[in-house]
Design a protein around this nucleic acid. Structure first.
Lengths: 165, 165
DNA sequence: CCTGAACGTTTGTTCGTCAAACGGTCCAGG
DNA sequence: CCTGGACCGTTTGACGAACAAACGTTCAGG
């Protein structure tokens, strides 16, 4: 027939090509690769998220920070350990509640955040290269809508639940 | 107050909220969770991709199949082993080239594919719930553009490339 | 015949997500 | 007072998926 004239590896199956869950998986892999390459071996993607959170919220406890970022609290420990080792954040006991550790970003951390953000934006630009500026805005809006919607599900606390009305 | 009436965990940092690479990560996690739940423990997402590829391309070698799907050839081995154990695919030596194994989907595999596709579409519908039909089309188009663009990078072989003109 | 390339396979590493448990701490109710 | 339950940070382990490197076998071309 004709189908074999394409060198090969040209087009994925139609069924997958229109399946958002499959497309998202591929975009994610590309995105991950670009950002990871841009950051190097010493810094992970979660590090940027944590630094950005601290920069915006000011000093907070790990639990609050983790919930806002949608992160597992257990995984936060390792991230903060790494960030503190680089003197990008400080952690001190909250005198009013000795269960809590108040995390704050340092000047070095803020500088690192700027660098990382810049690289992340460069990686993003590479990812979105085939899209026009208005298309990029569209994409951001659509993704925000999805994330905003599903984040309410995922809250294990607030037990209320069931049918909310 | 306006901003603090939300209990907490309401809004992520602005810098992340407009960062596509971060948004994609979250959408991917949600997507993965939905599809995984829909498929159950016995079937992975890659299984669907392989079955869909076989159904569309007809019998092919593992290498060709893997490249078209953008999959690692090593990982394909485990997937095919699992699929063959369920009698969803058959593998036979190619008499003309004994290096190759020709993979074909069985009737059971085609039936399984139908079931899986149905569940995947249901998961997709849940993922895209907050989007209107035209928005969903927009999203598909944008994601296709991105994936289509970056798939050309990732080809280690066929070196030609550079600027495709 | 020999060399290089392609195929399928095995093995191992890395990263991020997730679940479960644990001791320490706070707070409210008995 | 003190006791129980909830929260905090932490550790440990499982899991899935992507990725890289090496290997023997087989083919094709010089």
């Amino acid at each position: 027939m004709h189908s074999s004239d394409a060198p090969e590896g040209a087009s994925p199956p139609d069924k997958l090509w229109s399946l958002v869950t499959w497309l998202v998986g591929h975009v994610y892999v590309d995105s991950r690769r670009l950002v990871t390459d841009a950051f190097g071996n010493s810094t992970s993607r979660t590090d940027l998220a944590v630094l950005a959170g601290l920069a915006e919220y000011g000093p907070v406890s790990q639990a609050v920070l983790g919930r806002r970022l949608g992160m597992n609290l257990g995984d936060m420990v390792a991230v903060l350990k790494r960030l503190e080792a680089q003197a990008w954040v400080t952690r001190r006991e909250d005198p009013q509640d000795r269960r809590r550790h108040t995390i704050a970003i340092t000047d070095d951390g803020a500088a690192a955040l700027d660098r990382l953000e810049e690289r992340a934006l460069a990686a993003q630009a590479e990812l979105l290269e085939p899209l026009s500026p208005p298309q990029r805005e569209q994409l951001v809006t659509l993704l925000q809508t999805i994330v905003g919607h599903h984040r309410d599900y995922r809250r294990p606390e607030g037990g209320a639940s069931g049918t909310p009305a």
